[in-house]
Structures are given as C-alpha cells and as structure tokens.
C-alpha cells in the first residue's frame, strides 16, 4: 500500500476512534412503524442532532449509548432544514463543530453511522459539490454533495473532516455511492434559534427575486415583487432593485437568495444593499416571522412583529 494511502487510512481510523463514541443509534416509532437512524451529540449535556426523518415525527425515541438505551425527548424539529434535535438526560461526549466553508471539491470527509442493524461504521469519501438544486427542487440552503457510500440507517449521521470536526449532517442519498449533507452552519443556525427563542425562527421580508437580463454591480438578482404590508415594503425596497448583499451574503444570482434567506432570523435586523438606478442603497430590515400569517392576516402584522424599520435608506458611498 502506498505511504499516502496508509497515512490517509490512519487518519480516517483516528477520526473514527475519536468520534464514534459521540455517535448514537436512534430507534423510534412513527406512523409507518418502527424506524432506526443515527444521531450525534453536540454538547456534553446530551443534546444531539439527527435527521428530521428520524426524530422529527417519531415517538418512543430511544438512544443507544454505550450499550444501553436511554429515552430521548424532542427539542425541536425543523422541516425546512430537515433536522431534529433530541435530548437525552446524561453526560455525553460531544463532537466539535467545524466549518463547511473551508471545504473544497475533493476535500476528504468521513461519515459515521449505524447502517441497518450493524454497529457504528465509518464511510470515507470526498466533497463532490455544493448544490442548491437537486431532485427537481431547491434546497433551503446550499447542501454538500458527498461521494461516499451511504446506507440505510445512516440518516442523521455526522459528516466529519479529517480533524474530527462536524461539517455536515447526512440527510439524503443521491444515486449510488453519493449523498447530500446539510452544512453544519445551517444546523447551528437552527440550534441558535432554539437557544434564543425556544424554536426555529425563520425570517422573511417579503421580496420575490428573479433573474435580471443583465448584471449590475456583479448581480443578476432583481426584485420582481415587493409584497404589500411586509418588512420589505415598509423598508422602502422597490420592484426593480438589484440585490447586491443580504447581511454578510453577497448576491450574484437569484439562487444566492436561498442561502441569505435561510439565515434570516425573525426579529433580527438585516442590512440589505441594492442598486436602484445608479444609486447604491442600504435598507435595514427587521425580518418577520412565518409567511403564512403575514399573507393571511395582514392586520396582525403590528402585533406579531413590530416593524421598527428605518424609513429612509442609508446612502452608501
């Protein structure tokens, strides 16, 4: 075996030995019967991540840890991101959180899961892409396409870099020997919402974006509609504005909106920079909560989400 392969194998083995103790098998019952999946601890008090399909709509959840089964309760289930958070009342090991932003195509990664009714199993692969669209629809945010062979039962497994840090959560299989993982930043956004508000707080401002015929300042994302009585309308955004940046996310094309939108939190103020004609404007917009109440009952706007919006935009030099 070449030395580099031996070295890589040693690294994978090291990651597996260090991290497998924080990966657990989850068993539960849902409306279709009994199910089995994977999860992993992210703090020493027994909080763990798993896939929505494992812990999102299930009852009688148990976590197998060190050969014993413990009852788990659901902290949150977020359909948009596709994850669930569970809690087991025990002192647990925890996997360190990494950064998916540092991943590149062909970066090696390791997944640890419980396939079928087998013991914890490592899978080795590499990052194959960063996709926003697949299966005929758009992901809520960029997903990691990973070339590693996933098996049934590994939904909710951690995707680790070779430092043993979590960079994603394995959610969907894709063709053969390939799968999709939610970037860990997206999961941490949901966990942050839970810590702050007790539930996921997806934000929304009420703008619809389409592709502009020509790029302006490097962006092709043009606001097609500004919905009435929404934070976007109240802030002064108008149809035809070219969106350049939302928070820290630079926008180049309409698909970039997905990433920016996912990380909006209801109640938080986000600066949105647009080009209107030759003017660069920045609006500070307080994101609203869910879309449905806004559209269904506009009269509740002021009660549900105070629109402390800056009425006149800042002029950006």
């Amino acid at each position: 075996m070449p030395e580099s392969a031996t070295s890589l194998s040693r690294e994978v083995k090291d990651v597996f030995e260090r991290c497998a103790k924080a990966v657990v098998k989850i068993e539960a019952t849902d409306q279709h019967g009994e199910l089995s999946g994977t999860g992993f601890f992210v703090d020493p008090t027994g909080t763990l991540y798993t896939a929505y399909s494992v812990g999102g709509e299930a009852d009688n959840v148990t976590v197998e840890f060190k050969g014993r089964k413990y009852p788990a309760r659901q902290l949150l289930a977020d359909l948009r991101s596709g994850i669930a958070m569970l809690k087991v009342d025990l002192a647990s090991p925890a996997l360190p959180i990494g950064s998916s932003d540092q991943l590149e195509i062909a970066t090696p990664v390791v997944a640890i899961g419980y396939p079928l009714d087998l013991a914890e199993t490592p899978s080795f692969g590499m990052i194959a892409g960063f996709d926003r669209k697949c299966f005929g629809g758009y992901f809520p945010t960029k997903h990691l396409r990973v070339n590693l062979p996933p098996q049934r039962g590994e939904g909710g497994a951690p995707l680790l870099n070779l430092k043993g840090e979590v960079v994603g959560i394995l959610l969907y299989t894709f063709e053969n020997n390939s799968c999709y993982a939610l970037p860990i930043e997206a999961a941490e956004k949901i966990r942050s919402d839970f810590v702050r508000f007790g539930e996921p707080k997806h934000g929304w401002i009420g703008a619809n974006v389409a592709e502009a015929s020509a790029p302006v300042e490097g962006s092709r994302a043009v606001t097609k509609d500004i919905m009435k009585d929404t934070p976007a309308a109240e802030s002064g955004m108008k149809q035809g504005d070219i969106v350049l940046q939302i928070g820290r996310t630079k926008v180049h094309e309409p698909e970039d909106i997905l990433d920016a939108s996912f990380f909006l939190t209801a109640g938080d103020v986000v600066p949105i920079t647009v080009m209107r004609g030759n003017e660069k404007l920045t609006f500070n917009v307080e994101a609203a909560g869910s879309r449905a109440p806004l559209l269904a009952a506009p009269s509740l706007n002021n009660r549900a989400m105070p629109l402390n919006l800056q009425s006149s935009p800042e002029r950006t030099p």
């Binding site: 068993e27 279709h32 199910l35 999946g37 399909s53 359909l79 996933p150 049934r152 590994e154 969907y172």
Partner: peptide
C-alpha cells in the same frame, strides 16, 4: 425497523 436515509428532501 425502517432504516432511515431519505431519497428526497423533506
């Protein structure tokens, strides 16, 4: 049990 790994997003 049903061993979970979705084939499409939820």
């Amino acid at each position: 049990p049903r061993y979970v790994l979705d084939s499409v997003p939820v």
